[in-house]
Write a protein that binds this DNA or RNA. Structure first.
Lengths: 362, 362
DNA sequence: CTGAAAGCGCTAACAC
DNA sequence: GTGTTAGCGCTTTCAG
């Protein structure tokens, strides 16, 4: 009586039934090495009959490659940027034959740290991360990473030699300001999401994510270039929490001389402006203007549509995956800092104070 | 000269350096079986020194468990439901010590099929899927699934004995209709997302997802209970594509006697209403009313806020993971069909035709 | 309480 | 072109 194979068929079962050795079966199934075409066909047929499925874990163990990449995404992917980025990474990875193991840290460095350890232990071939850190962290050293390739998306960490795919946030922010200035706005409110602050503050926090840093600098440069005096600008740095951001918006609006336009650094801040404006019966694009960074279908569908700096999220994710996979399959690629161009999409959320000065009296 | 271990340290290196056997090292590190406390401490210290990291792939191979679950999510997680569900699953899984391997199919059965095969080959311990199929598919048999547990979220497949976590869509839809009727609406437009149709149609497609089916039935029941004659109802079944849904909305609005309120079956359809209304300078909650299913921060932040049937997405995901993990760790749990209650969140997008009949003359 | 040894399923030298 | 064999790194009987 033949050894009854109880569980699911393995390559040994296939080999036996096909009357060949394991090696031949393997060659037939994985399509490598020299093998007789007829043998291959036969083995494959037998495998099919048996309902054989390769065990990728065993393969991974043997080859030292899991064909899996780890995605460490911070915060909600409830955020209009991160959900698209996630989808982009998953899709691009699959096209290249990789699966993605996903982890969510809540902008929390400790969570990021442990996520990376887990992923490395799971033997991912590489990592795509949205780093939560502003300074060089200790858990992103080649040693901790087991020398696995890594690429950052959305943000850089200056001083770390890591490939990063970001967007031209400085230019985008500049363009946003130029746009509102061209429409006659002179009193500007800036609402900047900044982790690490409690509530909101006028003082610029010392440590900021590279994206935030770039946006601030871009905003500031264009405002200054446009001849807008600091007095005419209100800057609020705000915790990324509805309670904080809404309070910040109210503060902005309740100034003796409130801004005619608010520029927000991300979706969450824009949401707060929308909320508060709604509560106060203020019409966007008329009573108060708004420009934000990152597009979404909702921003487009509103009336008026919200003017945004759109970032090429899908492309960013795709490039990140391509660079990572290139480095996995051919180690030693040079590090690159890639910044993708952004685009201002003007919709109706910025009042034209030139054509309709009655909307805004100084 | 001792065998210089080149690569990363393995448990053998730890054992050697600690002067114990592999078995003892394993016991010390994985904290099982009988082991002397002092020995354990020593081994752990050595492991620490060496920077030893367990290889989870090897563990998985040996134990036959990967501590990984596969998530097969359809469509965009750009969708306000799926992004939150994804996050919910990832978070809940991590809390239970599982990682998640994510796949995105675009409501495409073939993609789903291949995703599941891949996941099974990767030896996931179980599967959470949003099934794209309306009828019983051939790729979800215990055999194809390698007898791994599976739970559906968001939708059921009637006739398939699979644990599913859904929401009370029938009741939610009913409640939505009751709400608009109570506000005096009598002419109702229903915009239903339905895959499989091209463009849009008035004819009800034969095969519908269980969620869609339930929503339609709920809408219809409440309308009929409320004495709304079929003549007063317009039903449009629509491809889930902006071009199609926007055309459908226009059709709805361009009828000789257009509905005073549109009830949409999902976010995408609601987006189309918003878009078209914006283009036509129609004010939501006044010129045209809107109720949709699934909440999002955007729907809440708009002015007026959009009235929605909110579904408990996080809870749904959490329960799905818990049920799945229970079944992984203790196989043979009974299948369950769980439907979570939903909640109507009334905001300002439905005009009150009773208080302000001038908004709507028959 | 600890060690020896087997083996999870697969691939890749190396022989023939 | 095919078979033999040796592991990948780990856990787990089974002895002692």
């Amino acid at each position: 009586m033949p050894k009854a194979s109880t569980g699911k068929p393995t390559i040994v079962d296939v080999a036996e039934k096909a009357g060949v050795s394991r090696a031949t079966a393997s060659r037939a199934l994985s399509n490598y090495g020299r093998i007789n075409a007829a043998t291959q066909l036969h083995v494959r047929r037998v495998a099919e009959e048996l309902g054989y499925r390769p065990n990728e874990v065993a393969k991974a163990m043997r080859r030292g490659k899991t064909k899996t990449i780890g995605l460490v995404i911070v915060a909600d992917f409830t955020n209009a940027f991160f959900d698209r980025a996630t989808k982009g990474v998953v899709d691009a990875a699959r096209e290249l034959g990789y699966q993605v193991l996903i982890t969510n840290t809540n902008e929390d460095l400790a969570a990021e740290r442990s996520a990376i350890i887990t992923l490395i232990e799971k033997q991912v071939d590489g990592l795509i991360v949205v780093p939560a850190a502003t300074a060089i962290p200790d858990h992103l050293t080649p040693d901790q990473l087991d020398n696995k390739p890594i690429v950052f998306i959305d943000r850089r960490i200056d001083g770390l030699q890591v490939t990063s795919i970001t967007t031209e946030d400085f230019q985008g922010a500049e363009e946003a300001v130029r746009h509102v200035l061209s429409l006659g706005h002179k009193r500007l409110g800036f609402l900047i999401a900044a982790s690490g602050v409690a509530g909101f503050t006028q003082e610029r926090p010392p440590l900021l994510l590279s994206t935030v840093e770039d946006r601030i600098n871009g905003f500031a440069k264009a405002a200054s270039d446009g001849g807008i005096k600091p007095k005419m600008q209100t800057w609020l740095y705000c915790e990324d929490l509805p309670s904080a951001s809404e309070a910040a918006v109210m503060r902005l609006l309740d100034q003796p001389k409130p801004p005619s336009v608010i520029l927000t650094s991300n979706n969450d801040m824009a949401l707060a402006v929308l909320k508060v404006a709604g509560n106060r019966q203020l019409t966007i694009g008329k009573d108060i203007s708004l420009v934000t960074i990152d597009d979404s279908q909702w921003l487009e569908a509103m009336s008026p549509g919200i003017t945004v700096v759109a970032r090429p999220v899908e492309e960013l994710s795709r490039i990140a995956v391509e660079k990572l996979v290139a480095n996995i399959e051919e180690p030693g690629q040079p590090e690159e800092q890639i910044a993708l161009p952004v685009e201002l999409v003007a919709r109706g959320s910025v009042a034209n104070l030139i054509l309709r000065p009655e909307l805004w009296m100084e």
